[in-house]
Design a protein around this nucleic acid. Structure first.
Lengths: 198, 198
DNA sequence: ATATGTATCTCGCTC
DNA sequence: GAGCGAGGTACATAT
């Protein structure tokens, strides 16, 4: 629906959207989107499973502890997409692919042949991307893009959960200059791993 | 436009979307969205400023180093929203508001009256939400929602950049049970700060 | 352009 | 449902 309207949101946060012409999308999974003339992200939204009620010129969407109220001024047009498809994209060059690449050929990236490898190794406070045993404990954090200081920090938080000797690695196609310096200070080794060409 | 089509994306990553009926939105800021029958996030998208070219039944969107190719099978309908509004929402209960609340009345949350307060205090590796001086250095990380272990870690990374004595705080409306345990271990103090009612 | 952090993040997964 | 992390995150902002 394309309509002149205003929107009020009340839930985790709260917001108002001034009256204007917006695109309102109500999907078969009962999610609700209100889009403005710019940006990829919607101005307002409601996750799947919301209950929608229409009361005269007011549309109310309720979802657990969140509510959106649309006050309609004028409906410009309405469309009902038939047989809307629900396929997902097939994505390549994800972090998962990089993990598989390293695990399938660890000696190329580590310089030794480990006695044990565990993917998504869980410890108390979260999961390590790749855990490797070889004369000690090797913790590898994999990133699909450029590694940053935050990623180094995320890696370091796991180190106290492994006995010495333990070694920390960031594996990614790139790394920021600041992260290079930071990781050097903290004794983190960077492993360059590249995405497969298409 | 609502159309039966397939989509190929090539850029930072790469993806294919199987043929189906999708909602295609092309905005005045030249951003492009392809929406499926579920989810708030689009199946494929292109940020603002993309160049769009139509070549028979093929739509190509180019944006710096990214490209989307839409192969049209059948156009079900097309609409041209007139005078699409570009207003932004006015948001309340943001992190910024919580920061302002603490800064305007620090003694209530800290238990003392500081000699100096700096918001968004920059150090080498990033910015601290609130920096307070009072018989030492107090570093406060503010979260608008529930604080987690990751937030505690994010806070701890700043501590080496301040001389002793220094103190770490998380300020948020809530905190996860695991984060309670983790922060206790690390000597982080939790400050409960609540959002203003609407 | 690089870097850093927030988000009503969303979404998927595990416990 | 809670908790945690990935994301083509998007988006704003500071250097």
């Amino acid at each position: 629906m394309y309509a002149k309207c205003s929107v009020i949101y009340e839930g985790r946060a709260s917001s108002t959207l001034p009256t204007g012409n917006y695109l309102i999308i109500y999907k078969p999974d009962f999610s609700l989107l209100i889009h403005g003339a710019s940006q990829v992200s919607p101005r307002n939204y409601q996750g799947p499973g919301s209950e929608l009620a229409i009361n005269g010129t007011t549309i109310i969407s309720n979802n657990k502890s969140e509510a959106i109220t649309i006050q309609l001024d004028k409906i410009h047009w309405v469309q009902h997409p038939n047989e809307w498809s629900d396929n997902n994209i097939v994505l390549r060059r994800s972090e998962k692919e990089l993990v598989a690449k390293i695990v399938s050929n660890p000696s190329e990236y580590l310089g030794f042949t480990p006695s044990k490898i565990i993917v998504e190794h869980r410890v108390e406070i979260g999961a390590v991307d790749i855990y490797v045993e070889h004369e000690g404990h090797h913790i590898i954090e994999v990133k699909r893009g450029k590694a940053t200081i935050s990623h180094c920090v995320q890696l370091l938080k796991y180190m106290p959960y492994f006995p010495m000797p333990s070694f920390a690695y960031i594996a990614s196609p790139g790394i920021s200059q600041k992260a290079v310096k930071y990781s050097k200070d903290k004794g983190i080794k960077w492993i360059k791993v590249e995405h497969e060409a298409t």
